[in-house]
Design a protein around this nucleic acid. Structure first.
Lengths: 349, 349
DNA sequence: CCGTATATAGAAAGCGCTTGCTGCAACGCT
DNA sequence: AGCGTTGCAGCAAGCGCTTTCTATATACGG
């Protein structure tokens, strides 16, 4: 069968305990002995048995990263940054940790199940990214699970997610509301008064916060919103395309379309173009997130840049205990308005 | 401390063995007993200890997915498809498996280390995605590792990666060469004779194969290539931007630019625009992969569509033993030429 | 009514590793 | 020289689960 610690010990003429200590480097071992052990390990091509080790030591080197959609660069970028800090192989010192990215697909059950799975594996830390689902029972279940994880010694960090008070989780929240407000204020400042809004899926904190920011801006400028100006959809391009067509049908006099995120905004651009509208001469478009491709659109997208990589890196460091948690366990991360070619003054009505 | 199997057993007034059997459902247990156990599990909020279970059963429910760059949708899409098939939570029947996505960042060491880590965890299966690194010693080390994994009972699937003969790994290879050739032939067919090529990083199979396809097309049409027409770079937008500028400097008479992938192509488009060139009137551009955003570029990108999701799904199924391996353990997956707005007849010289 | 097949539960032996404790030299101190 | 230190290695007891084997109870056929 496979090579075990005992085999290595036999070969190196030491006890299994010594081999373990050499491998973990947490106990003094004479240099000559260490060398003998290492040689045996090498010769036998020994690979530690992870489960056995985790069981005996009651710790694991797994770190979980939960994302809503791994195919979406929004999450990919965060995950990448988190993982880089987790250390994984090639990371800085410390035992090698296995960062596992789990794709929930936005499904509440999966989210919960993954958390259970991670709990089962006795994960060292868990980072939850992206907006949360606003279903009360689900939220309660999640909070309970998180609390349990924290109690069991797993560090839980929320990255780009609203805080979960009293769970012990540390939150790095994106200021979606503020960003949304700033973005819409920019459009209002250009003179827009009739703005369509393509929101994300309902029951999502991200969706709600961005929309609230938008509405706050409208309200602050005394613009009364027509209920037909808001359409809900998914966070993808196709959804943006369809929603824009719908928006145009409902009110062709709209001079601007604000999208839930950049992918949606790109879909909106395509729909507008296909409808014979010029951007931004006829209709301005704005996105959110500032993903890498947004600057490549023609015209390039006006959007709110979220420091995805920075936030992810920080979340990763906190998860590893390499950076202190923010005061109160909560930090708000602001976005930055990026004014680009897709927004301009409204057409003369 | 945490709740253990024994606690549940005590509460349900049965032996630990029975609890284990109820949980695993692989042994007859009287319905009444099962119910009592389940109730106790629920009441105590018991969560199985993964490492202990893995140790005792000598199996694990971890499945590893190695990707070069998790922030790149190319990998994100594949990973997502693979994971969906792995079953993860929410997947079809069978024990719940934890699909872990590991980001190698294209680094050989990390690739190897992750494989070791997965081996250590006794992963049930491993899927390696994307091009391989063409360094002989590294390749040998990888092959050896893969062989060892297979020997240990881990199913290894290569998705979008060249086969690794005699390792026992199953390969679903992308026909990068054929796709590259077809793409360039399309441009040649339009009348292009002076084509720049922005290749990916050297020492990568994907880079080499696509470039070989390109050159095969040139050769087939008797076009002699100027060495200055090829520039190497990374697989990202910025690299495409810079390489295009360089290409333009070297030979302003180029009428087409073929990029290593879509991101690079987008960078190329930006560089061309910034240099005052129209696409495709002055210069045609072509990409590779057909990522979702490619159709949104203006003009939309001519490219080769790779069935990323389909291939990933299939790889996932094979990894789970739910689909038979292709004959000989090797299958070639073809791309499909997508002719769109970014390619047209060359300008009159 | 008894022997044997059939269902279900329990006892107990590990799985391969970690770690607290013990053992034993060699060492330095008074 | 005697004794406490210090440094290094081994012993052995688990970690929490799975699984083989055994035991008991019930059902069945003759």
């Amino acid at each position: 069968m496979t090579v075990t610690l005992a085999d290595v010990a036999a070969r190196a003429q030491v006890s299994p305990a010594t081999v373990s200590r050499v491998l973990n480097g947490n106990y003094p071992v004479a240099a000559s002995t260490r060398e003998r052990v290492l040689k045996a390990v090498d010769e036998l091509d020994y690979v530690l048995n992870g489960p056995a080790s985790a069981l005996a030591a009651a710790t694991s080197d797994l770190v979980g990263i939960l994302v809503n959609d791994i195919a979406d660069p929004f999450f990919g970028i965060m995950a990448s940054a988190i993982q880089a800090e987790i250390g994984g192989p090639g990371g800085r010192a410390g035992g090698e940790r296995l960062a596992v990215v789990c794709n929930t697909g936005g499904s509440p059950e999966r989210e919960l199940t993954y958390l259970t799975l991670l709990q089962r594996q006795r994960a060292a830390a868990v980072v939850l990214t992206g907006g949360a689902i606003e279903d009360a029972p689900h939220k309660a279940a999640m909070d309970a699970k998180v609390r349990k994880l924290v109690e069991a010694g797993t560090r839980v960090v929320l990255c780009g997610r609203p805080p979960a008070p009293d769970t012990g989780a540390i939150a790095l929240t994106f200021d979606n509301r503020g960003g949304g407000q700033e973005l819409t204020e920019h459009l209002i400042g250009l003179g827009h008064r009739r703005l369509g809004y393509i929101a994300g899926p309902e029951e999502r904190t991200t969706t709600r916060h961005r929309l609230e920011g938008h509405r706050a801006a409208l309200a602050a400028h005394g613009i009364e919103e027509d209920p037909g100006w808001t359409v809900h959809g998914r966070y993808d391009r196709r959804s943006g395309y369809e929603a824009t067509l719908e928006l145009l049908r409902r009110d062709p006099s709209l001079t601007a379309v604000v999208a839930a995120n950049d992918s949606v905004a790109l879909g909106a651009c395509a729909a507008l173009r296909d409808s014979g509208q010029r951007i931004p001469e006829d209709v301005s478009v704005a996105g959110f997130d500032d993903l890498p491709f947004s600057i490549d659109a023609v015209p390039s997208l006006t959007t709110v840049r979220l420091p995805l990589a920075e936030a992810g890196a920080r979340a990763g460091r906190i998860a590893m205990g390499r950076e202190e948690a923010p005061p109160g366990g909560i930090a708000s991360v602001r976005g930055e308005l990026m004014v680009r070619g897709s927004s301009g003054v409204p057409r003369a009505s």
